[in-house]
Amino acid sequence: MSDRTQPDDAVDPLSLHGVVPPTVTAFEADESLDAETTAAHARYVVDGGAHAVFPLGTNGEFALLTPDERESVVAAVADEVGDEVPVIAGVGAPSTYETLRHAERAADAGADGLVVVTPYYYPLDDAGAVEHYRRVVEAVDAPVYVYHIPSKTGNELSRTAVAEIAALDGIAGLKDSSKDVPWLGQVIADAPELTYLIGSDSLLLPGLDLGCAGMVSAVANVFPELVCDLYAAYAEGDRGTARDLQYTVYRVRDALKRGPYMAGVKTALDLRGFDAGPLRSPLRTMDETDRAALERDLRELDLL
């Protein structure tokens, strides 16, 4: 099995594939942005084998940042690793107006591609979704990747809407975190020319089987080598090893989900010697009991 197979009519100029960690945003103790450590985390995952990086995703706490902070994150990450791997930056917002401003600033700051989450909070119909992405691709000269995560946005894209969005010039791919395997399989069949990224650590191997070119993995924020080994085994046709590594990822994922929402990744990074600081309020870090349990779980897996 090849490392990357694109259909003849592929529309992704970056040919995204492999492991794409949704890198963290680091903060100082007072929750102010630490751009230097944010860039250092991008370096950490790239040195661990990542094929691209995705700042300002869910793990990057994008919704808690100001527009200036978002731009600073993109610039810092692009300056650190942009010469080595593609940098695809999250630019989503509830409104199209704000999304366009984020997209323009991210492109100017050095992003190679833009990840546009479905608008959130207000309900969105098919026509509104298609028009939203139409306006984004018309406003920027960078490949755009749809980010589908209905559990967080409250808006699920229909297959009809995705097919219309896929036909827009400038749409390069879709990152799916719906965990709806039949939906994803049918969307890939409907528009195979796009690049697809599976967005759940519970479905890395199934996502590759469905036709995804790569994986946006929170586990890879802490253990990039583990997820890169899984991808490499799959690309080499060693399904048995890939399956075993997916099982390990399941166990790591379960360990990281202990405690408050999203606290696991930064706590596990700290246990590996990388201090990314706190999460920004109202998110919060693990207490000592949960931290000790996480450390025990990871040591049992031989990962510390």
Rank of each mutant, 00 (worst) to 15 (best):
R258T: 07
P224S: 03
E80K: 05
A218N: 12
G173A: 01
D12H: 13
P260S: 01
A29C: 05
E236K: 11
Y121K: 07
G90Q: 12
V227E: 02
P282W: 01
N221R: 06
L16T: 07
L294Y: 04
R4V: 14
E236I: 14
L194N: 07
S32I: 08
R251V: 03
A50V: 03
T118I: 06
E295M: 09
Y196K: 00
A111H: 03
L279H: 00
A276V: 15
A40G: 06
A75D: 14
L124S: 09
V249S: 09
A167W: 15
R70L: 04
L168Q: 12
A191P: 07
C228W: 13
H41C: 07
S178G: 13
A213R: 13
I149H: 02
A78T: 07
K152E: 14
L64K: 07
D297N: 10
M286S: 02
R4G: 06
D34C: 11
L269H: 01
V45Q: 02
V130S: 03
P182Q: 08
T285W: 12
Q186S: 14
A167P: 06
P182E: 11
R43P: 10
F223P: 15
R258C: 01
L100Y: 13
R243M: 10
F54K: 00
Q6Y: 15
E236T: 14
P150A: 08
T289G: 08
V73W: 02
T58R: 05
E80C: 09
Y97M: 04
I198T: 11
R280N: 12
T285C: 08
R291F: 05
R253V: 08
T66L: 12
D244T: 12
E138H: 10
R239C: 06
V87Y: 09
P260G: 01
A233G: 09
D83C: 06
I165C: 00
L269E: 01
L210M: 11
V219C: 09
Y250E: 11
P278L: 06
G18Q: 04
T285F: 09
E236D: 15
T37C: 05
F54R: 01
V53M: 06
Y44I: 12
E156P: 12
A293W: 04
A163P: 00
V77D: 09
P192R: 05
A103Y: 10
Q246M: 02
Y44T: 10
D275T: 15
D290S: 14
L283H: 02
A50K: 00
F223M: 08
P22S: 05
A268T: 03
Q246L: 04
A35P: 10
Y231E: 13
R243Q: 15
P67S: 12
Y133M: 07
F27T: 05
R291G: 02
